[in-house]
Simulated scan of single mutants.
Amino acid sequence: MNEFTNWDIFQALILAARWTVVLSLIAFLGGASVGLLLTFLQISSRTALVRIARFYVELFQGTPLLMQLFLVFFGLSLLGIDVSPWTAAALALTLFSSAFLSEIWRGCIESLPKGQWEASRCLGLSYFEIMRHIILPQALKVAVAPTVGFSVQIVKGTALASIIGFVELTKAGTMLNNATFEPFKVFGMVALIYFLLCYPLSVASRHLERKLNVTG
């Protein structure tokens, strides 16, 4: 059995946590981009676009993230497309997060009083002017807190990427446990690092909710 000090283990986990952070950022930014497009499709007046967007959202919300990771990693390989665990994890998490972010933002937009749409149209504003000057500024205040809160789920979701061989925090913990045979110590440190990553986001979400007074 290899001898590892507590500092050796913690240092190795911190290095692996960098990839957890990077993957989380890619998934959030990619998911936000796709999610924004889906949001506009869902509030579109065209029925076909609405149905396509809703099918996408229901598909990725209604299936486990673990299954999505398997399908992206192994499914693309069956089609002759060679993807690395890094690419598969980033793509699967982007698709997963986009569906949830789209629903959050759609709900925030639709929570605004319908009278604001009607009053804006009476003023002769176009659809894009209404969205830019009236709807989106108000919806943004409502959406900030739940969006930041959902980022916690993205960080925790990256742990599932270890199942397809992507070496992030959880995978590194498994590898260190196999070398040290000290699961309580190793996974205790893994849990601590996840907590240190997620707790500030949870605090920020609650702070933003109070500051923006979205419940009042």
Rank of each mutant, 00 (worst) to 15 (best):
F181G: 05
E182P: 01
E182G: 00
E182Q: 15
P183R: 09
P183F: 08
P183V: 12
P183S: 12
F184N: 04
F184L: 15
K185Y: 06
K185F: 10
K185E: 13
K185I: 14
V186T: 10
V186C: 01
V186R: 04
F187W: 09
G188W: 00
G188P: 05
M189K: 07
M189W: 10
M189S: 03
V190K: 03
V190G: 03
V190W: 00
A191D: 01
A191I: 10
A191S: 14
A191R: 01
L192R: 00
L192N: 02
L192K: 01
L192S: 07
I193G: 02
I193P: 01
I193D: 05
I193N: 03
I193L: 13
Y194R: 11
F195C: 06
F195R: 07
F195P: 02
F195D: 02
L196A: 15
L196N: 08
L196F: 13
L196H: 07
L197N: 05
L197Q: 01
L197R: 04
L197T: 01
C198L: 06
C198Q: 03
C198I: 06
C198K: 05
Y199C: 11
Y199L: 12
P200V: 05
P200Q: 03
L201A: 06
L201P: 05
S202I: 09
V203D: 02
A204L: 15
A204G: 05
S205R: 13
S205I: 01
S205C: 04
S205T: 06
S205K: 11
R206T: 12
R206F: 07
R206A: 14
H207E: 10
H207Y: 15
H207Q: 14
H207M: 13
H207C: 12
L208D: 00
E209L: 07
R210I: 12
R210E: 11
R210W: 10
R210P: 02
R210Q: 14
R210S: 10
K211S: 13
K211M: 12
K211L: 13
L212A: 07
L212Y: 13
L212C: 03
L212S: 04
N213R: 15
N213C: 12
N213T: 12
N213K: 15
N213V: 10
